[in-house]
């Protein structure tokens, strides 16, 4: 269990969360970031790392991952802490006005200010439309392979056609008793090497490859036992399964933040444009997760919001001090 004390706890390590570290750092405020994804960068790294972005001032064009890498370099002097691959589960306000943010990995961050920079929310696995799917979560249905050893000598059905579905099919074919890959397409358009390997394994009879098919139902008796697969000719077959691993990528959901008493408007947090504060004192929301009249979901708007947030947050971190605004062109970037 990690216990961290900092000035600002930033929920979300996307571009706006990262830049908030810089703006806070200029005012001598330390930050700790939490993100459910294993890497920093949010949508940019998770959804479109190789896409060009054209509206970052000063960069006529910049690749999304390059922007994230640049932000990491820019905030490095301020030594932010990171808890990656962790989902924020709880928020508690203490008597002294500070906050405790906790995660599913038992990390506890105590801070004077909380900044929600969660983009469109917390990335969660995209679930296929199958009745009872959630009933069997943790009882055979899992959306990620954390411990491959779990699948040793088991019957595993993997659903999906992306790189991770191909990669895990190849990996688990050596470990599991039986691997079935169910894919709705007739080809794999992802990594050609992996697709070739999967076809080869299927040709050798080492895996079952069910193309142009979907998992449509699951059955079990407390634990998963069978998976029903429908093909394009409407033929149904039943596959015995100890595990079903649907791998259809991630999609953002607002998650537990929705239950914190924040004013929510259409899945976004309402803020005061004076400083991007929420209706709860000491909690700010910046970037795509906030809403206000005229809101534009642009990275550059999030950067602006981060700057104003930091100026306002200063009063919670240093209540005894007066803030004087300083230009980096005059004073440089003074690190801790």
């Amino acid at each position: 269990m990690a216990q961290i004390t900092t000035d600002i706890c930033i929920i979300g390590a996307g571009p706006v969360g990262l830049f908030a570290v810089f703006e806070a750092g200029l005012l001598k405020m330390r930050c700790h970031l939490i993100d459910v994804l294993q890497q920093v960068g949010g949508q940019l790294s998770e959804i479109y790392p190789q896409k060009p972005i054209y509206d970052i001032p000063g960069f006529p064009v910049i690749n999304a991952q390059q922007l994230v890498d640049g932000l990491m370099e820019q905030i490095e002097p301020f030594k932010p802490g990171f808890s990656l691959g962790e989902r924020v589960t709880g928020l508690e306000k203490l008597d002294d006005g500070s906050y405790i943010v906790s995660t599913n990995e038992d990390t506890v961050v105590r801070s004077k200010v909380v900044v929600i920079a969660g983009g469109l929310g917390c990335f969660e696995p995209r679930k296929p439309p199958i009745d009872n799917l959630e009933t069997y979560e943790g009882k055979g249905v899992t959306y990620m392979v954390k411990d491959p050893g779990l699948f040793r000598d088991k019957k595993v059905v993997i659903a999906g056609g992306g790189d991770s579905a191909l990669d895990w099919t190849i990996y688990l074919s050596e470990l599991a008793e039986q691997v079935t890959l169910v894919h709705r397409g007739d080809t794999f358009r992802g990594a050609p090497d992996s697709a070739e390997k999967v076809a080869h394994l299927a040709g050798q009879g080492k895996i079952n490859l069910l193309l142009q098919s979907n998992v449509t139902a699951i059955q079990g008796n407390g634990r998963l036992q069978k998976v029903q697969v429908l093909d394009k000719n409407k033929l149904i077959q039943t596959v015995e399964a100890d595990y079903l691993v649907p791998l259809f990528g991630l999609t953002p959901r607002l998650g537990p933040i929705a239950d914190w008493g924040l004013q929510i408007d259409k899945s976004a947090i309402s803020v005061n444009t004076l400083d991007y504060s929420t209706n709860i004192e000491g909690i700010y929301a910046i970037g795509d997760i906030n809403t206000y009249p005229g809101k534009l979901k642009l990275i550059l708007c999030g950067f602006h919001e981060a700057a104003l947030m930091a100026q306002s947050a200063f009063k919670y971190v240093y209540p005894e001090q007066k803030l004087s605004f300083k230009y980096t062109t005059v004073y440089g970037v003074n690190t801790f």
Partner: peptide
Amino acid sequence: ELITLENHPGA
């Protein structure tokens, strides 16, 4: 588009 749709469970 095809890659995204093929990997979308509801497509």
